[in-house]
Design a protein around this nucleic acid. Sequence first.
DNA 1: CTCCTATATAGATGGACGTCGATCTGCCAC
DNA 2: GTGGCAGATCGACGTCCATCTATATAGGAG
Lengths: 117, 117
Amino acid sequence: MDVDLPLAPKVKRPAGEPCCEPVVYPDVAREQAVRMSLVAKALADPVRVQLVDVLRKHAGKVCVCELVPLFDLSQPTVSHHLKVLREAGVVGSERQGLWAYYFVIPDALAELSVWLS
Amino acid sequence: MDVDLPLAPKVKRPAGEPCCEPVVYPDVAREQAVRMSLVAKALADPVRVQLVDVLRKHAGKVCVCELVPLFDLSQPTVSHHLKVLREAGVVGSERQGLWAYYFVIPDALAELSVWLS
DNA sequence: CTCCTATATAGATGGACGTCGATCTGCCAC
DNA sequence: GTGGCAGATCGACGTCCATCTATATAGGAG
């Protein structure tokens, strides 16, 4: 019962190699990482990337009736992807009579863009 | 049976508004959208964003044993996230004895970064 | 060889995602 | 009012994802 139990961590390195230097990681981005991962998740589908691409290249509002025939998808599916982008703050929408128009919100992509470059 | 079925599309516009102008969308990016969405999916988790952030700020190889204690996650979960990043081509790995070192592959983020800016 | 350590893999589980058809909501024309 | 149209929402289905525990692999120490 009173034997020496080998419980001490001891951190025995197999050789004299340092491996884990005591480098400090100041955790630069916790909330920032959450924000950027949400934008990345909104872009984690090729359809949504193409939707944003079309909206950005148009530099103005684009009617949904123009977006739907661009894809081999049903209208509800395209509407769902637009909703995902809108809830991520990447695009905005506006109704005019029967039609709905979507546009990009450039600031939403800025943080991720800066971090990537 | 021989009545006039109202099958003609007719595209009746509620008013004289144009709505859908005949703008051509040259489908700038189909495979490109797939590639970028795969990179975005790899970044669609805050843990993976922070992993890439740490690796980029270090500008060299970082041992896994340094990455695991940065998160409140089990070691297999961190290993899983590193695998996701590696399969997306965002990071690379290298074994030295017992330890494994990970590093960023900058070119993987270039396409998405350029497109975002 | 045996023990220990660092990492990867396997299997399970609860939850989220992409897609569809069907339906609902407004709006315009008549 | 009725009818029709654009778009959004709902419910369901199959698949993928993030996490865990448990186990496997592989290399060094003794």
